[in-house]
Structures are given as structure tokens and as C-alpha cells.
């Protein structure tokens, strides 16, 4: 390998860019594939219930399913708005 090649090789090769892009993409697509079918419906209904009490955005809720050998973890994450934006509960 000549001196010129040495300098040329400091840039990442297109093959390594391809590998990195694929690893990220494939990991993402696999996690979606393993999601149970009911997840989107569950997310929608949970959102409706929460909205009865708190005024949250459509994207303020995230439902994720993680799997390892021993167990499945259903993670529910809701971002509540600041106090000022909350609906006042009806008091008699």
C-alpha cells in the first residue's frame, strides 16, 4: 500500500457506511415486527382514557414492547403537560 492509499483510506469506506445504516435499520424494523398486533389499538384507547382527565397531546404517549429471553416488558410513557395547561377537574 502506497503513501497515497494511506491518506485515501482515512475516509470511511462506503461499505462501512452501508453496514452501519443497515444495522440501525434492521434493528428498528425487527423491533416493530415483534410488536403484538394489539399495540396500536391499546395505545389509542389508553390515550382516550387519559384525555378524559388530562389534556395531553397525541404524541405525548408512547407504548413500547421489549422482549428478552425470559420476559416481555410493556413500557408505557406519558408526558404530562405543565400545571397551567391541565384541565380543572369538575368540583361541586
Amino acid at each position: 500500500m502506497g503513501l497515497l492509499d494511506y491518506f485515501r483510506n482515512t475516509r470511511p469506506s462506503t461499505a462501512s457506511i452501508a453496514k452501519e445504516r443497515l444495522q440501525i435499520l434492521v434493528a428498528h424494523e425487527r423491533s416493530e415486527r415483534n410488536r403484538p398486533d394489539y399495540l396500536p389499538m391499546l395505545q389509542k384507547e389508553l390515550l382516550e382514557v387519559i384525555r378524559k382527565y388530562v389534556n395531553v397531546d397525541q404524541d405525548a404517549i408512547s407504548v413500547t414492547m421489549e422482549q428478552d429471553d425470559k420476559r416481555e416488558i410493556l413500557e408505557l410513557n406519558i408526558i404530562l403537560p405543565d400545571d397551567s395547561q391541565r384541565k380543572k377537574p369538575n368540583r361541586r
Partner: peptide, 10 residues
């Protein structure tokens, strides 16, 4: 070898 193609290992 030139880094233009994904390898078998990749």
C-alpha cells in the same frame, strides 16, 4: 477489498 462492497462478514 477496496471497501466498496459489504463483505461476507458484514
Amino acid at each position: 477489498k477496496l471497501g466498496e462492497m459489504l463483505s461476507v462478514e458484514d
